[in-house]
Design a protein around this nucleic acid. Structure first.
Lengths: 186, 186
DNA sequence: CAAAATAGTGAGTGATTAGTCACTCAAATT
DNA sequence: AATTTGAGTGACTAATCACTCACTATTTTG
């Protein structure tokens, strides 16, 4: 009975679909701006059943955020694995490309932006910190790059978020091009 | 109430105090998480009068955000002026120091974070874009640094926001020190 | 088949809040 | 003194929303 062979109960399957809907909807309207009812509607079930699957809106958001960071980590791993050159710089660059690809639909990016705004909710702040720790440590240990290079990697990730949030990627003015130059804006 | 000591303020003075309160309170609880009543309470007036001074919560937030960016720009200007060395690199560094000083109480920093989360409200997104344009262009023209250096300046600003939002500045673990190294965390 | 367990919902409740409106009172103006 | 102007408020309204609960329907099991 390996883990992969375990047949998920329908409640567990439902939970997964609700988390997927939560990522999409929370990414669109943020933590406070999203009603549990709208997540339920996106998932095709009643609001009452969402509360059966997740005890609170807060925990639903945290679960979605945890899942988001796991997807990011997996993407970085995949990116590193497909890097031609296995030097630290090349690996970090490949991770950046993989990150940009993953952010292409903006959902996982916007969820992180909204999480930062909601970080004063203790559980959300903790989840954000944990996700950042996972990403930072994975980038460091997998690439073996210098601390400075990893810091820069994270900083450019944040710049990427700003670019998307402000819509600068489709702004051709000189100042906007200065900010977005060389960034694979998703 | 017959109290001759009560001094009525002019509407313009009142508007300024309300904007100051709005910066503080919106910074604490975000755009959707802040009621106009709580801003009114902080300013010591009734909610109804806030709506007399500002036609909507949205416009109150935008006014506060505009003011925030003007304060940032003024701080950068002051920082640049007090830079010993007037090389581009030194000026940009002095601006970074001035920015860190200005963000010391976190209000102007958190307001920007919340604005990013609320940027899908068209007027808020526009104000954010305008503020970023003002800051970027001022940094560029005043320092005469390269485009890349200015981009890095903005990216590290965003990293600074992340550090504060996650409370990493008071985290002494190895990974946290890697992210915060060399950053004047406000 | 009967019974137990599990999936799922309709119909609420109580709290919050953006915005309105009719109003009061102090101060300036005539 | 009388009038006008502008500062400021109390008391609403209509909507939204997190969360609950009593309930039904379906599936699994003994």
């Amino acid at each position: 009975m390996s883990n992969a062979a375990i047949k998920l109960s329908t409640a567990d399957v439902r939970r997964d679909t609700v988390v997927a809907s939560a990522i999409t909807v929370f990414a669109q309207t943020g933590y406070l701006g999203t009603s549990v009812a709208s997540v339920a509607q996106h998932a095709g079930i009643s609001p009452a059943y969402v509360f059966k699957l997740f005890p609170s809106k807060e925990l639903l958001f945290v679960t979605a955020l945890d899942h988001c960071f796991e997807l990011v980590r997996a993407a970085l791993e995949q990116g590193a694995a497909t890097s031609k050159d296995q030097t630290p710089e090349a690996i970090l660059y490949a991770m950046g490309e993989a990150y940009a690809d993953l952010m292409a639909d903006h959902s996982l990016l916007m969820l992180q932006v909204h999480a930062q705004s909601a970080a004063s909710v203790p559980e959300i702040g903790a989840a954000l910190r944990k996700g950042l720790r996972i990403i930072s440590m994975f980038a460091k240990t997998r690439s073996q790059a210098s601390d400075d290079a990893v810091q820069l990697f994270i900083a450019y990730g944040q710049l990427c978020h700003l670019i998307v949030v402000t819509g600068l990627d489709s702004d051709t003015s000189a100042w906007a091009r200065m900010i977005t130059a060389g960034i694979r804006h998703p």
